[in-house]
């Protein structure tokens, strides 16, 4: 479930709608520069996979479930700009076609899931890869995905608190607490799929022999 209409008060959803729209517009510009026409089918397929995987709620403790989000996966495969656009597209389809996530709060969902999720995951992945010079890629991927979920849930908690739904401390503790568990699922799926699709960049023999 994404934030439904009614959870955020007017000042919060109007502010997040404006910032969310600006973020998507900017990201579209960046995506235009980053995307290669040969990547189009792959980007579309990853979006479709993320949509499907988000449907699969898995049980966690205390009669609660969690589901995949996918921002980290999309952005370590294609970079955070394309990643955030893929996530935005998923959220828009979910809200309008499946009534999953509200309309007034679409901006809030986009900011938390598409932007905080994608950029946190990507930042940790890139930093980790640099720090460990490419070793332990699956551990880094898992950590990046886990943190992205925790960060996104903290974003939602702060927006709920800003709306006056509950105290910031209580909100953070409750949301982050559950999502520390849900993040394990995110880490597992992201690591499996990214590990399957990413390979070491070993130059092809025929490229090496070219003058």
């Amino acid at each position: 479930m994404h934030i439904p209409d009614g959870f955020l008060d007017a000042k919060t959803w109007i502010t997040t709608s404006v910032i969310g729209a600006a973020a998507v517009a900017y990201s579209l510009q960046k995506t235009k520069l980053a995307v290669d026409s040969k990547q189009v089918p792959k980007v579309a397929l990853i979006g479709s996979f993320i949509f499907a995987a988000q449907m699969l709620n898995f049980p966690i403790a205390g009669a609660t479930s969690g589901h995949f989000l996918g921002g980290t996966l999309a952005s370590i495969l294609f970079g955070p700009w394309i990643g955030s656009i893929v996530m935005t597209a998923v959220l828009i389809i979910q809200a309008f076609v499946f009534q999953d996530g509200g309309i007034t709060v679409l901006g809030a969902n986009i900011l938390c899931t598409a932007f905080i999720g994608s950029f946190t995951g990507y930042g940790i992945y890139k930093a980790g890869m640099k720090l460990l010079t490419g070793r332990g890629r699956s551990v880094i991927t898992f950590a990046a995905a886990w943190f992205s979920i925790v960060a996104a849930s903290a974003g939602v908690a702060l927006l709920l608190a800003w709306s006056g739904t509950f105290e910031p401390g209580t909100a953070l503790k409750a949301m982050v607490g559950w999502h520390m568990l849900i993040g394990l699922g995110e880490g597992l799926i992201t690591t499996l799929v990214a590990g399957y699709l990413i390979e070491r960049n070993i130059p092809l023999a025929k490229e090496v022999t070219l003058p």
Partner: peptide, 9 residues
């Protein structure tokens, strides 16, 4: 898929 409420719910 699990029909239990998710994190936010």
């Amino acid at each position: 898929a699990s029909s239990h409420p998710d994190g936010l719910e």
